[in-house]
Simulated scan of single mutants.
Amino acid sequence: MVPTASPQQIITTFSLAFFLEIVANSLMLPVQARSIHAVPMSPLFPVQSVDFPLATTIVQADNQQTPRSQLSQTEWNNFTPPSRGTPGRREGAGTRGRCPGGVTALIPTSTLGRTALEKPTIYYYIPTSLETVLVKFELLDEEDDTLYEKTLEMKETKAGVIGLDLSQYEDAPTLEVNKNYHWYLTIRCEPDTFDPSGDIVINGWINRVALSPNQLQALESEQPSERLNLYAEEALWYETVSTLAQLRLSNPEDTVIQQRWAELLNSVGLGDIAPQPLISSELIQSTLEQ
């Protein structure tokens, strides 16, 4: 005899099945919801590509507002001298006698630096102390025709970085805008002899550019440390070196300035010179024109 279910049992079984289906559907909703929410994580909707680059852009923008980051990002070495001129040489070769090897011009690796100044300052490094040497400065045009020369006498000086400020000499020519100039610095460590074979010669290029009236006005109103921002934007090498050198001299204990100085020299492969002191060496007009 086949057992049969009573009407009450049938109703109870149907109600239980209906209840279980509702529960199952409700349990699947969070899963479906999570699946739908996960759609933007697919390659077509990369959430991270929307959120993180925006934050990165903000960080980069903030960094670019600081002179330090701009100094490191400026491509100082991208400017090259004219091909028709003699290549520059920023490090003097080892020589005989009292002249040391390793004398180095603080210029980019290409040997050309930009400036907006009529008479910039040229910085160079001497690795040992010297006594009573002659320093001859020459300024030439792109064709290597001499425009100006001056022989100076340098009294006793220690090893370090020295600046030759052309604005101190009234007879020095004013650099013209949009022109390239080639400068030579010759150090004669034995001035009593007339043998040039022992001389140290370093040389580099200068390209003068013009600034807009707004830029000039901004430079007049900014503090020296803040001017570095504009100098870096315009890749004005000679102003940047000179400003940082002056800041180092006036604030010898400022670690931020020291770090920016090191950052600048590292960007042109002269990081070994960064820890060296800045030397105020007296350069006077020499009576021994050679």
Rank of each mutant, 00 (worst) to 15 (best):
G204L: 09
G204S: 10
G204D: 07
G204T: 03
I206T: 12
R208E: 06
R208T: 09
R208S: 07
V209R: 10
L211K: 11
Q215G: 01
Q215W: 00
Q217Y: 11
Q217A: 15
Q217R: 15
A218S: 15
A218F: 11
L219Q: 01
S221G: 01
S221I: 08
E222G: 08
P224Y: 04
P224L: 00
S225W: 12
E226M: 12
R227Y: 00
L228K: 01
L230N: 03
L230K: 08
Y231F: 15
Y231G: 08
Y231I: 09
E234P: 09
A235E: 11
L236D: 05
L236A: 00
L236Y: 04
W237R: 06
Y238G: 07
E239V: 07
T240I: 07
V241S: 10
V241D: 05
V241K: 08
S242K: 10
S242E: 14
T243N: 11
T243K: 08
A245F: 03
A245E: 00
Q246F: 09
Q246L: 12
Q246A: 12
L247I: 10
L247V: 09
L247H: 08
L249T: 12
L249V: 13
S250Y: 09
S250W: 01
N251M: 13
N251W: 08
N251V: 01
N251F: 13
P252N: 01
D254C: 02
T255H: 10
V256M: 12
V256G: 06
I257N: 06
Q258K: 11
Q258L: 07
W261R: 02
E263M: 14
E263K: 14
L265F: 05
L265K: 03
L265W: 04
N266Q: 12
N266D: 15
V268M: 07
V268Y: 01
V268N: 00
G269A: 04
L270H: 02
G271S: 11
A274S: 09
A274C: 03
P275M: 05
P275D: 09
Q276G: 01
I279Q: 08
I279Y: 07
S280T: 15
S281C: 06
S281K: 01
S281Y: 02
I284A: 11
